[in-house]
Each structure stands twice: as C-alpha cells, then as structure tokens.
Amino acid sequence: MNIVELYELYKQYPSVQTDTRKLKQGDIFFALRGPNFNANAFAETALANGAVYAVIDDATYNTHANMILVDDVLSTLQQLALFHRNQFNIPFLAITGSNGKTTTKELIHAVLNTTYTTYTTEGNLNNHIGVPLTILKIRSDAQMAVIEMGANHRGEIASYCVYARPDHGLITNVGKAHLEGFGGYEGVRKGKGELFDHLRSCKGTVFVMNDYDYLKEMSAGIENRFTYGTHDADVTGSIVESEPFLSVAFEDFTISTQLVGAYNLPNVLAAVAVGTYFNVPAETIKKAIEGYTT
C-alpha cells in the first residue's frame, strides 16, 4: 500500500495511535519498534481492542486482513504526516530551544487560538514520533498550527522540518541541555539553528529574541524577521514585578500573568510578538496570557 492509498484510509479514520493502552475505537494503530520493544507483537491485540487497521513492518505478524504491511512503520508514519501537512496552506510555526519551549508554545497557542482555529503539540510530544503525531491531529478547519520540536543531537530538527515544513519559526534560547548528544555548546547552537537554516532556505519568517546576540547572529541573512525583547525590537516589554507572579509592561498595556519568576519574561514576550505579528488585538493578547495557568 502506498502513501496515497494509506492517506485515503486515514481520511476515513483520522485518528492515529502508537500505544495500545490508549487505543480508541476507530484508530489506526502504528506498530513502532525500539531497541527494547516491538509493537508488531501487539498488532492483533490492537485490532481486537477497536483499531480499524494496524500498520506493521514484520511479516510474521501479518495475520489479519486489516494488517497493513510496510517496509518501515516509523518512516511510513512520518511520510503520512508529510502528505497530510501538504494539504494545508496555513501558517505552521515551529518552536525549538534549550529551555522554555513548552511554556512558550502553550502561551502562543493561547493567544492565537482566540482568533484562529489553532492546533498545537500536546504536552511535550516533540520528538520523531510526537511531531508526526501532532501533524496528524490537525483537522481540516485549522487556520494555524504550532509545532514544538525537541532534540538531543544534530540533524533532528532538520529531519522534523522535512515533514512539518514550517514557514514560521522561533528558537527560545540556546543553552547547555543535552551537551553530550550535541558534542558541546557549538553543536547545540548548530542543532537548534537547523530550524533557522530551514526557514532561510524557504524564505520563511523567524521570531527573534533581540536581547540574545547569538540569536541575532543565527538569524542573519533571513529576510523576514520579527523581533522581541526588552529594547530595540518590534515588540518590547519590561518586568514590573516577578514575585509572586510576573507582570510585564508593554507600550500600551501591562500583562499580569499567573507565571512565577522573571525567567518567564522571554516566553511572554514571544507570545505577545507572535500575536502582534498575526494581528491579534492587544487586549485579546493580554486576556489570553493573563488567563493561562500551568
């Protein structure tokens, strides 16, 4: 079965699952493998528990008419996600970085979803499995998509960009997380920078925290840049207070968040910047961020 045929089945049954414990009636089960597990062995159980089809890559388990045998289940899942992504002509915003990805993603989703039907990553499902699953949860009414991308070695972000095809992107920061996998700080910078490399090549738009010189350097050569920070940026804000909760003053309004600590300032600035760029009214941005709780 090729991807076009599989996509026709997916359109009939647009719910994909990789965990038999979370199966719902009508799901398509993808039997993934790992170093210590082989979900092909659970394909029959998945069908018995309500899955309409099970996608497998081990012929030993091809024992039912509703088994779909492919060369590689993970690759097929990612190809299906790409095929689905290609059906949309809407902004896809990718977010990566060493810290603050999930909070920034949730704040941006809260802001955009006030004005646009916005789909986003659930929790921190931001890896080579979570990203395609996120894409496959996007429905036809989508007006925006916000995709979180995590990585612990170089090449990962670039691979996610192949099937997520983001046309907008944001790197929260570059820190010292996963140094071993990246081979040092410079490796982290290059790995996270793969998002900007993709956006540079496709003439996309980047949101840049202008307080961080390294992000300005990493985004050099990208024509479409929208900046945020505490000074000299398209959107600027400063801390009013940070204890017990963070309040941030902007030019025309102040946002009193339910977030603790000054370290959340860049996350709030990012959400205001993205909302502003996509023409969400200032008062709506304020209410969305003030209403957000972790």
Rank of each mutant, 00 (worst) to 15 (best):
E5P: 01
E5C: 07
L9Y: 15
Y10D: 07
T18V: 15
K22V: 02
L23P: 00
L23S: 08
D27L: 05
A39G: 02
A41M: 11
A41Q: 15
N49S: 13
G50W: 11
A51Y: 09
A51L: 01
V55A: 06
I56Y: 11
D57N: 13
D58H: 11
D58T: 03
A59N: 13
T76D: 05
Q79P: 01
L82R: 13
Q87N: 13
N89P: 01
F92C: 03
T96Q: 03
G97F: 04
E106Y: 10
I108P: 02
H109W: 14
T118E: 01
G123F: 09
L125W: 15
H128L: 09
P132A: 04
L133G: 04
L133I: 11
K137G: 00
I138Q: 05
R139G: 11
E148Q: 10
M149A: 04
A151Q: 12
R165P: 07
P166M: 07
D167C: 06
D167F: 02
I171T: 06
G175P: 00
K176G: 04
G181V: 12
G183V: 02
E186A: 11
L195H: 13
M209S: 09
Y212W: 11
Y212H: 05
Y214M: 04
I222G: 03
R225E: 12
F226Q: 04
Y228Q: 03
T230R: 06
H231T: 14
H231S: 14
D234L: 05
D234T: 08
G237D: 05
E241T: 15
V248M: 00
E251C: 02
D252S: 15
T257K: 08
Q258C: 07
Q258E: 14
Q258V: 02
G261L: 09
G261K: 12
A262T: 00
L265G: 05
N267Q: 05
N267R: 06
N267F: 08
L269A: 05
A270M: 08
A271F: 08
A271H: 10
V274T: 13
I285Q: 09
A288W: 07
Y292F: 15
